[in-house]
Every structure is written in C-alpha cells, then in structure tokens.
C-alpha cells in the first residue's frame, strides 16, 4: 500500500522507494531511510500540505505526492 494510505500513527515496513524523485531518494538514503526500514506515518497537514514521517529515529517532512511513491507493508 501507499504510505499515505496508512492511518496517522501507524507503523510499516518500506517495500519500495525507487519511484520517488531521485533527489529526495538520495537524501532519504543519506538519512538511512531505504527498503526494509521501519517507518511511522505521523500525520499530514491540511489542504494537501506536507506530511511528517518518523524513521531511523528522526522526524522528516516531505510532500504528500512524494510520500505516495513510498510503498509500505503494515507491521
């Protein structure tokens, strides 16, 4: 499922992150966020605003359309 389909506060495992914008993918990799890592979808800001994720012990904000490109599996 897409990351944004999870309920706020739910945790999942990243299964595919390769569809995301390459620049963001590189930055996420720098932060340690890649396939196989646990990720928590915290919440999204209104009017299609960015959403907040927690992974590898840090909080990160990315846009919703990018978050949609992250495929996850509930765990």
């Amino acid at each position: 499922m897409e990351l944004t389909q999870m309920k706020p506060g739910e945790k999942g495992l990243i299964t595919d992150i390769s569809k995301i914008n390459p620049l963001i993918q590189n930055r996420l990799l720098d932060l340690g966020i890649k396939e196989g890592e646990r990720i928590c979808y915290k919440y999204a800001l209104p009017f299609g605003g960015p959403c907040m994720l927690e992974a590898c012990g840090q909080c990160i904000g990315i846009r919703r359309k990018e978050a949609k490109c992250i495929r996850v599996e509930k765990c």
Partner: peptide, 9 residues
C-alpha cells in the same frame, strides 16, 4: 526543475 521539499525536523 520541479519543486522538491524534504526537511529534517
């Protein structure tokens, strides 16, 4: 290029 946004909190 298109706009991108990624930020560490």
């Amino acid at each position: 290029e298109g706009s991108v946004f990624v930020i560490e909190l």
